[in-house]
């Protein structure tokens, strides 16, 4: 398997992520109904539909460009809270791949770590707060370990995708302290946070593209 993700791979990653969210839109919206205001899945799907067109029209010349487009689309799509946070998250991947021909595992680990820091700072969310951070943090740790251990890109992404999935599933047992979910408290217990699930889908899509 390739040790890098070039521009075409990144575009496939974005499309695979959009496909996954669209497939799960109903499920994500249902999750959001239990913990928020019930528009997460449809909002994400709508932003990604726009992103598909924008990415196709952009004519990327660097590996970070599709993520840059994704970030801008999310930051301009809706004025809620989860959309803009995803926008800033994608933007870190755009920055990491700015001017580069391809992403290495190390670059993805760096983008994930920076994305974690950005989302945590802007959303004032820590691990255990039942937010997207609960999927980002384990993915970030898995990627750092993969780089440390000299794993291949596909092995690293497999590990990150599994860690993000476990992290997202684990939000089922967490009480929300940030965002709208903090208003409903225990009523959301038993179902995972939709933002964390979307992050798991993001790494799942990367794993798929890397052939892991």
């Amino acid at each position: 398997m390739a040790e890098q993700l070039d521009i075409a791979d990144v575009e496939r990653w974005v499309l695979a992520f959009a496909d996954a969210v669209e497939e799960e839109a109903g499920y994500l919206t249902d999750l959001d109904r239990r913990s928020g205001d019930g528009d997460f899945g449809s909002n994400m799907a709508a932003a990604l539909r726009r992103s598909r067109e924008a990415v196709a029209a952009a004519g990327s010349t660097a590996a970070g460009d599709p993520f840059q487009v994704l970030g801008e689309t999310f930051l301009g799509h809706s004025g809620g809270t989860s959309g803009p946070l995803f926008g800033m998250w994608f933007r870190e991947f755009g920055k990491a791949g700015a001017g580069a021909e391809a992403f290495t595992l190390e670059m993805l680990a760096g983008a994930t770590a920076n994305g974690w820091a950005t989302v945590a700072r802007l959303g004032s969310a820590r691990v255990g707060d039942r937010t997207m951070v609960d999927a980002i943090a384990p993915a970030s740790e898995a990627l750092a370990e993969a780089v440390e251990g000299g794993l291949s890109l596909s092995e690293g992404l497999r590990s990150a995708a599994e860690a993000a999935r476990v992290g997202a599933d684990g939000t089922s047992g967490l009480l929300g302290r940030r965002g709208r979910t903090s208003y409903v408290g225990e009523a959301a217990l038993g179902s995972p946070d939709p933002g964390a699930v979307a992050v798991a889908l993001f790494y799942g899509a990367a794993r798929e593209v890397a052939g892991a």
Partner: peptide, 12 residues
């Protein structure tokens, strides 16, 4: 201005 009772976007 954002949508009704909704923040404007960062891009706006």
């Amino acid at each position: 201005p954002g949508a009704v009772f909704t923040s404007p976007t960062a891009v706006q």
